[in-house]
Each structure stands twice: as structure tokens, then as C-alpha cells.
Amino acid sequence: MSKKGKAIVAKDLTKVYQMGEVQVHALCGVSIEIKHGEVVAIMGPSGSGKSTLMNIIGCLDRPTSGEYYLDGELVSGMNDDQLALVRNRKVGFVFQNFNLLSRSSALLNVELPLRYAGQRERQRERAVVALEAVGLADRMDHKPMELSGGQQQRVALARAIINDPAIILADEPTGNLDSKSGKEILSLLLDMNKKKGTTLIIVTHDPGIAEETERVIRLYDGQVVDS
């Protein structure tokens, strides 16, 4: 099993939470591989370990055991600051509830990852390009409150792609949107995958979205039942 050339290689991931006296096994030996440029949906009922898997893939959390390689790098043994760096460089997040800073304009929201990357040159231009790419060229100075849900999710999308990540991780990206805006966001996501070849991982309940993707990973009780 080669690690190079794969966006994601996970081997035998487990995750155990200690809830008081009880041990909860959220993941019980999950192994998956995702190639560069693939479009994958992760599905499963609540409690299936889907969120836990997403957190590990997004480097927000570490597995209890098992190995996880993101873009060829072994992530599972990293410390907090190294993980922060990996998130900053390699992962673009899109959340169900957008998670924009309400005080800041769209442009500043999109710039935020660049600030933490310590790249000061051409910050502004890159943010402008990203916002143009999601069709919000005329709304750059608006604050999130002044934008519709669909527009807010586009800002989040621009923020996700600004650092040219290896993967875009979208957690129910259309969950808070009406079906029309939902379709637009989905097609934007797919579009980016086609144009730039960015690996796209969508965590969703929506079978409609799963139909649009090349591959569906189904989880049940912390195990992969179908990939």
C-alpha cells in the first residue's frame, strides 16, 4: 500500500472516549484510502462515528491508535502546534453553520488563514481572487450579517481554498441552506475539484449529495461498512 500519491491513508484508526466510568468506542478499526482529486461522501447515521472520523481526517483530533497519513505526512503522532500547521496548510474546512467571524468583513474572513500562515505578501489580492472565484466580487466589504446564507457559505468556501489545501473537508455544507443555494454550493465545490483537482470530502446525511459524488464511504457503529 503506497502512501505517496494518496491524499489520505488511514490504517486501523480507533478512537475511545472516556465518559465517566464508561468507555465509548467511537471508531473501531477504520481503514480508508482516498486518492488525490477524488470526490468522496462520508455517510452514516448519527452515532456511527462519522463526526469523529471527520475530526481526525481534519486534524482537529488524534486517533487513540492507528496511523493516519495526510498528503503523505504522518499526522497521528503530531503535537498540537504541528497539527495547527497541517490544518492551516493542507485542510480547507467548510462547516454546516458557516462559522464566519461576525465582526469582520467577508474579505477579512477569507484572509484569516493567511494571517496564521504568516504570509503577509499579497494577502489582500489572494483573498480578492478567492472571493471572485466564488462569485462574491461585489460583496467583499459586507459583514456576514449582511449576506444571505448561501453567500455566507460561499465566503466560507473562499476561506477554505485560499491556502490551496490538499483536501477540502465539508461537514454538511448544505445543511443550513435552502435547496437552491444548497445546489449552488455543491456545484461550486464540485467545480473546484474539477478545476484544481482538490480532493473533496463531504460528510452528509443527504442521499442527494451522495449521488453526485464518485464514491460513498458508509460508517456504522464505528466501522466502515461500504466504501
Binding site: 495547527a84 496548510r89 474546512f93
Partner: peptide, 15 residues
């Protein structure tokens, strides 16, 4: 939540 978001976007502890 804002802190969580900033961390997700790559903010280190020191930041």
C-alpha cells in the same frame, strides 16, 4: 466557537 474556528484555520496556542 470563534476560538475553535481560529484553531481549525491554523491558529497555534501562542496565537
Amino acid at each position: 466557537r470563534e476560538i475553535g474556528l481560529r484553531k481549525a484555520l491554523g491558529a497555534r496556542k501562542a496565537d
